[in-house]
Nucleic acid binder design. Structure first.
Length: 297
DNA sequence: CAGGCGTGGAC
DNA sequence: TGTCCAAGCCT
């Protein structure tokens, strides 16, 4: 069985050339693109998992300044990582980054590994982050499939408004076929950049797109996504919102807080206790003997 | 593998 | 306002 060409060869070559050229001209000057260490690249990738660039920037700068190596972070209590994470959201990422730093000290001499398998074995590193670190920190040739790239490929190549809800094997194959022999790491950055600043989810700026004339979704007249809409994530009144409130109290306090301070931020006692238990189980909160709570040590 | 997991900005 | 969305990972 052979994989059909996703685009005519001539179009494929133009797609590569136009996109790489556009990226060279217009790429944002982001700190993790400025000759950053592999560790700094990894830090940025953890923070950028589901969090916008604008909110990551200040936290990233403070983080790599304070902990310039995996060993520096691994030497600190996990609670310090959680506090420094600030309001980026999904604070378990801070724990996983700390655990990844510890694992790199233990298994890789304190260095970020360059192989995909070694990266994937680290806590908090999945398919995307492993490929991204391999590409952006080491110049590796890997298919990098994030939400931006998936959307760009869905539109330009498949002629559809949005990619499937979950990554499919067809998407992986397509990304592999499209991966250029040379400059694969720049291709990865360029396709992500296009999705982030031009081919956006809500209102794409096709007038600024360097490959608009190759785009099958555009050529087809922008047909609307026809599959069932993804259910939006509930938020108000959820355990997740409650956990966020509790974590905010602990982050903003210099030390342990009495349980009454936690009780004050959420009315439903049953839900509050369940959320607090969950945070303790996750390692985000440490209960102390005197009925106080703190970030973990 | 569908659902849980934070937070805030844009519309 | 509420809804959608943002360089995912884990179970």
């Amino acid at each position: 069985m052979t994989t059909p060409a996703p685009l005519p060869v001539a179009d494929l070559a133009r797609l590569h050339d136009e996109l790489l050229d556009w990226f060279d001209r217009t790429a944002r000057d982001l700190p993790w693109r400025r000759n950053a260490s592999p560790w700094a690249v990894m830090v940025s990738e953890f923070m950028l998992q589901q969090t916008p660039v604008s909110r990551v920037l200040p936290v990233y700068e403070a983080w790599v300044d304070r902990w310039p190596t995996p060993a520096a972070l691994a030497a600190e209590p996990t609670g310090e990582a959680v506090r420094a994470w600030g309001r980026l959201g999904y604070p378990r990422r801070a724990l996983r980054l700390h655990a990844a730093a510890t694992a790199m000290v233990d298994r890789h001499g304190g260095e970020v590994p360059s192989s995909l398998d070694d990266l994937l074995a680290l806590p908090g590193v999945g398919d995307y982050t492993a490929a991204a670190v391999s590409s952006f920190a080491f110049g590796g040739r890997e298919a990098v499939l994030d939400t931006n790239v998936r959307r760009v490929f869905a539109r330009v190549v498949r002629g559809e408004q949005f990619p499937p809800a979950a990554v499919t094997s067809a998407e992986r194959e397509l990304a592999t076929v499209l991966l250029p022999v040379r400059d694969a790491h720049r291709w990865a950055a360029a396709t992500m950049e296009l999705g982030a600043v031009v081919c956006t989810a809500r209102s794409p700026r096709c007038d600024a797109c360097p490959v608009a004339d190759l785009c099958r979704w555009r050529a087809a007249g922008y047909p609307a996504y026809d599959r069932p809409a993804r259910r939006g994530q509930a938020w108000h009144g959820t355990d997740r919102q409650c956990r966020g409130q509790l974590m905010a109290v602990l982050r903003d306090a210099p030390g342990p807080v009495p349980k009454s301070a936690l009780d004050a931020v959420w009315a439903d006692a049953l839900q509050r206790e369940r959320a607090l238990d969950g945070l303790v189980a996750d390692g985000l909160v440490e209960p102390l003997p005197d009925d106080t709570y703190s970030l973990p040590s």
